[in-house]
Amino acid sequence: MINALSINRLCKTYANGHVALKGVSLEVAEGDFFALLGPNGAGKSTLIGIVCSLVNRSGGTVSVFGHDTVTDAAQARRCIGLVPQEFNFNIFEPVQEIVMNQAGYYGIPRKVARERTHQYLEELDLWDKRHVQARELSGGMKRRLMIARALVHRPRLLILDEPTAGVDIEIRRSMWEYMRNLNEQGTTIILTTHYLEEAESLCRHIAIIDDGEVIENTSMKQLLMRLQVETFILDLARPIDALPDWDTDRIRLVDSTTLEVDVHRGDSLNHLFEILGEHGIDVISMRNKTNRLEQLFLHMLDENGPGGDLNDVA
C-alpha cells in the first residue's frame, strides 16, 4: 500500500542559519490518525510547511500518496488539506468568499464550490456567519473557518497544525468528533497539538520531534505500554491525620483527604484497595495524576537532553 506521506531525510536550514530539521524520516500510512508532537520550536510547523510546499526544503524528499512534492507538485498538492497554526486568510474577505476562492484555486467549478462551501460551513457551524468579514470572527470560529477551507477540495490527507489552540472545551470536543468522523470516512489525518490528552484520545500513531530530530515514532498503544509507573490520585471519604503504619512507600498522603499512589505496570489495583479497606480508608474517587502520554513525553524529552524548554510543553 502506498503511504499517505513519506518523508525521507528531510533537512531545513533557514536563511538566518538556524537548522530547524536535521534529517527527519517519517511515514504515515493511508487512513492513519497520526500525532506529530514536540516542544515549541521543535520543527513541527517547518516540517508541515515543507510537506505543503509553503517552505523550501534544504535537502531530502517528501512524497504524498506517491507523488513527489517537487517533481510531481500539482498531484501532491491536490491530496493535501492544511489547517495551519497561524491564521492565514485575508481578514477583510467574507467567510464564504474565503472558502469558495480556495475551491477556485483547485479549479473546482463555481457551482460545486458553492455546494461544498455550504456543506462545510454548515457542518462547522459557520453558515450563519458566511457574509461576515473574517476579522469579525472569534478565535475559535477562525480555526473552524480554516478547517472548512482545508476540506473544500476533499483532500485525502488532512494536516492540522494545532487546530484546537485557544478553542473552548465544548467546541474542542465537537472538533474531535468531527476529526474522528473524517478519519473514519477515510481521510488520513496528521495532527500536531500541545494538548496531549487530545493526541492520546484521537491518534493511533505518534512521532515525537525534538530539536529537529525524530526521537520517537511508534503506535500509541506501544508507547503507552512503556509507561512503567502510573500515579493515581485518590480522594478520601473521611479525612485522616496520618498514614497507617504499613509496609509500602508507594502511597503518600498529600493532604488529609487526598492520597497519591504509584502503581507499577502489571500490579493489581484490587490489592491496593484491599489494604486501604483493611485500614478503614474509604475512597470516593480516583484519577490519573497526569495524563499518561504527558508523563512519557516529558520523560523522553528529558532523556533527549537539553534543547527544548520543557516549561513550554503542554
Binding site: 505543503c52 510546499s53 498538492r77 492544511l82 485575508n90 481578514i91 480556495q102 484555486y105 479549479g107
Partner: peptide, 16 residues
C-alpha cells in the same frame, strides 16, 4: 497585502 496576511499561502498550497 497577501504576503502580510499570509493568504498568499492559499494559492501556494494549491496546484496552481
Amino acid at each position: 497585502g497577501s504576503k502580510f496576511h499570509r493568504n498568499i499561502e492559499e494559492m501556494l498550497i494549491s496546484p496552481l
